[in-house]
Write a protein that binds this DNA or RNA. Structure first.
Length: 590
RNA sequence: GGAGGCGUGGUGUAGCGGCCUAACAUGCAGCCCUGUCAAGGCUGAGAUCGCGGGUUCGAAUCCCGUCGCUUCCGCCA
């Protein structure tokens, strides 16, 4: 019997309830106690004339005391039902009550949805998690993960646990290191993902693998990034990217259904190539809930007399625009706000043109010919009342700036319906990007990704334009996960590593096991890794994934409850053959 | 590594050079109250305004530093 289960049909039953005191209302004679557990709230009434002993105990009870109450279920008197409560038609008349434990007054409200300083919440996480909002996040997460397991199990997938103590490969994010006492001076690393292991499981013939995998990355935190996080990791043999995408798409439709409360904008999920996404939205994870698409006005400005644009175009840069619908009346102050966002994203400036019924209002109007003004307004769909935002710079900056402005306008204009999920797939990412610092090619996603067969010749002539068999799932501007069809022949994999600057011995040292395995009948395979924390945060509208992780770290990676990381005993260090170079005051937290 | 925001009774906020002997709500404590459900009424306790330094006749308020939380950039194969 729980505090959420009793209904009118249970009237007359004798029941025992255990839970926490959500609220106590002492009317002098009658005392009402709202007893709360994970399942709900039930009103318990103590009548001094019926059971004086129980009433006496109830008068001393306080918030968050743990009680065991025995009593009789009965319908509430006419007119006193509470429609806000699932159990609001009934109450339990207590015949006996035991205080299983007392409770100090909590440091913050558990029975009210009030914003509390996050440091305090993290310090008393067990109380924070007692709050209904946090509980529903944890419970939803459980249901979603169970659904993932059921879905994949039903399709022949095998859940395999891969180790958390693995070899450090100093690629990508910084590794968390774990010293070995058996081999002083050497270290394990915690996995950034089970990538190589899952590929080896394909070589093993497991065929369809998945894991709810914990991943570790020693990098700066964000609202959507924790040092440890959870992925739904999976890999399949004998598949192409459409197979993986179709599998995931059907799963995510189910997961959204499991949550309820949100509608998917478009099924099947629209697909965009990376090039398309960058051209139209300036981002490889566009929020498709609204338009405000980026438009290229460079061609129409060929030979323009406006120096700021002409210089950029001559240097091979771009001039692009978005039409901010209905923002033509933006004040100087509001436009300054947009300029500030543009500059923070790397722009040197932001040009604006307000379209009015009898012309335009713009600081740059006097530099533009009549025909150019038209190209920058009506030709790109701007009507009176709209504001055109123009950015001129090299392509990457233009994309970044206009994407930031588009996101800002989407928020400011309320264009993103929070009850809608606009999923999309982004495909054909560049396989490699030039790393200026290292003077070498680097994998944009992961070095094991395959590429479009027709782009193979470009590996020799123009590696930067080779398109990967890589796909990301995006929703409402958030990257939910990504995967690829992998290279499964040693020579192909080595060719990529070579472009990345590895010689044979470096390859053998870092990826020897995988490379060897590719020579023993590795099947074609591909897979994907989906962020579990981000999915739950998206579905619950949580502002941070900390709200969907039971015991998260603070932004500086601190566990506020256990005060980790912390300094360790000298003897522990000695066993590991380690000495610490920083002063101990820097390695403990005050 | 860098930039911004926040830090005031237990909690959430107000106050932003002198009206501050720091306000409001809630929580907490006591008393009253037999149909409440954010119960109600009355009374009361509770804050050296994150910490350190400075400017000033005077600092919660301005300046500098520092600590903590947080957002973003860099970083995140």
């Amino acid at each position: 019997m729980t505090c959420g289960s009793l209904r009118v049909d249970d009237a007359g039953r004798s029941v025992t309830l255990r839970g926490w005191v959500n609220r106590r209302r002492d009317l002098g004679g009658l005392i009402f106690v709202d007893l709360r557990d994970r399942y709900g709230i039930t009103q318990v009434v103590f009548n001094p004339q019926v059971v004086p002993a129980a009433h006496e105990v109830a008068s001393r009870v306080r918030g968050e005391f743990v009680l065991e109450i025995t009593g009789t279920v009965r319908p509430r008197p006419e007119g006193t039902a509470n429609p806000n409560l699932a159990t609001g038609e009934i109450e339990v008349e207590a015949s006996a009550v035991a205080v299983l434990n007392e409770a100090k007054t909590p440091p913050f409200y558990i029975n009210e949805e009030v914003e509390v300083d996050e440091a305090l919440r993290l310090q008393y996480r067990y109380l924070d998690l007692r709050r209904p909002g946090m509980q529903s996040n944890v419970l939803l997460r459980h249901r979603l993960v169970k659904r993932m397991r059921d879905y994949l199990d039903a399709r022949g997938f095998c859940e395999v646990e891969t180790p958390c103590l693995i070899k450090s490969t100093p690629e990508g994010a910084r590794d968390f290191l774990v010293p070995s006492s058996a081999h002083p001076g050497t270290f394990y690393a915690l996995p950034q993902s089970p990538q190589q292991m899952k590929q080896l499981l394909m070589v093993a013939g497991l065929d369809r693998y998945f894991q709810i995998a914990r991943c570790f990355r020693d990098e700066a935190q964000r609202a959507d990034r924790q040092p440890e996080f959870t992925q739904l990791d999976l890999e399949m043999s004998f598949v192409g990217q459409d197979d993986v995408m179709a599998l995931m798409e059907a799963l995510y439709v189910e997961l959204v259904k499991e949550h309820g409360g949100k509608r998917i904008q478009e099924v099947p999920f629209p697909r965009l190539t990376y090039a398309d996404a960058m051209a139209r939205f300036g981002s490889d994870r566009p929020d498709l809930r609204f338009g405000l698409e980026i438009q290229d006005v460079g061609p129409a400005l060929a030979g323009t007399g406006f120096k700021a644009f002409a210089t950029v175009l001559e240097a091979g840069g771009q001039v692009k625009a978005i039409v901010a619908t209905g923002c033509g009346s933006y004040s100087r102050r509001e436009i300054d706000g947009l300029t500030e966002i543009a500059k923070r994203a790397g722009a040197k400036g932001l040009a604006t043109i307000a379209v009015e019924s009898n012309g335009v209002r713009s600081p740059i109007a006097k530099f533009l010919r009549e025909q150019e003004q038209q190209a920058l307004t009506s030709d790109i769909g701007a009507s009176p009342g709209d504001l055109v935002l123009l950015v001129a710079d090299e392509a990457a900056t233009v994309a970044k700036v206009l994407s930031a402005l588009r996101t800002e306008l989407g928020t400011a204009l309320g264009l993103g319906d929070p009850s809608v999920l606009a999923f999309c797939w982004v495909t054909e990412f560049p396989l490699l990007e030039w790393d200026e610092d290292g003077s070498r090619w680097d994998a944009t996603h992961n070095p094991f990704s395959g590429y479009l067969p027709e782009d193979e010749p470009l590996l020799d002539t123009d590696p930067g334009s080779v398109r990967a068999l890589q796909y990301d799932l995006v929703a409402n501007g958030a990257e939910l996960g990504g995967g690829s069809v992998r290279l499964h022949r040693r020579a192909e994999q080595e060719r990529i590593f070579a472009l990345m600057g590895y010689d044979r011995s470096a390859m053998a040292d870092r990826f020897g096991a995988l490379l060897d395995a590719l020579e023993y009948g590795a099947p074609p395979h591909g897979g994907i890794a989906m962020g579990v924390d981000r999915l739950v945060a998206l579905l619950t509208d949580a502002p941070s994934i900390r709200d969907v992780i039971a015991f998260p770290k603070s932004q500086r990676g601190i566990d506020m409850m256990f005060d980790a990381p912390s300094a360790v005993d000298q003897t522990q260090l000695e066993e590991l053959g380690l000495s610490v170079a920083v002063p101990s005051s820097n390695s403990t937290n005050p």
